[in-house]
Amino acid sequence: MIGLSAVLLIAAKTVTLVCGAVLTALTYRAYRRTDSPAMRALFVGIGLVTVGSIFAGSLHQMLDFPVATSITVESTFTAAGFAVLTYSLYTEQPSD
């Protein structure tokens, strides 16, 4: 039988996947429309955070990796994603 904490984890990862996929798709469309380096960085950053969360959850739930390993993987992707998101705020906008 699956425990309550596993159900909550799966529910949280599902919400992360859905919201992250929508945000990633919207920022990708905005990047394609504007060809802005800042939008490209925003798209990559959100994508990294989303993929890291899903990848880490999958490692733990499907491949029985230890929780500490999964959290380390997720934290690495999250840190990289936030670094790219921070970079996106300082990227020059193309001049018209």
Rank of each mutant, 00 (worst) to 15 (best):
R32H: 04
S53R: 04
G45M: 08
F82Y: 11
V67K: 10
P94R: 08
V15A: 09
G3D: 15
I71A: 14
A12L: 13
V18Y: 06
A41P: 01
A25M: 10
A6L: 15
T14Y: 01
E92N: 13
R40G: 04
G81P: 05
G52T: 02
I54C: 05
M1K: 06
G57P: 01
R33S: 06
G45S: 04
G47K: 03
S58M: 10
A11H: 06
E74Y: 12
A25N: 00
L26I: 02
E74Q: 15
I2A: 13
F77M: 03
I71Q: 14
A38E: 02
P37T: 00
L48D: 01
Y28M: 05
A83M: 09
P94G: 12
L42I: 02
T14I: 02
V73W: 02
V73A: 03
F65H: 12
V44G: 00
M1P: 03
H60Y: 13
L85Q: 00
S95Y: 13
P37A: 00
L4E: 14
V51W: 00
G47R: 03
F55D: 04
A79R: 07
R40W: 07
V84E: 10
R29S: 03
A68Y: 12
I71M: 12
L59C: 10
T16E: 14
A41L: 03
F43A: 09
A56F: 04
G57L: 04
P94S: 07
E74P: 02
G52C: 04
Q61S: 12
V51M: 05
S95W: 11
T72E: 08
E74I: 11
E92V: 12
E92S: 15
R32L: 11
V67N: 11
G52D: 00
G57V: 05
R33L: 07
T69I: 09
D96F: 10
R32F: 08
L59W: 02
A80T: 06
T24E: 02
L42D: 09
P94I: 08
L63E: 05
V18P: 05
G57A: 04
T76R: 05
A83V: 11
L9A: 14
E74C: 14
L4D: 13
Y28N: 09
F82D: 02
S58Q: 06
I10R: 09
T69Y: 07
D35H: 15
Y31P: 06
A6H: 12
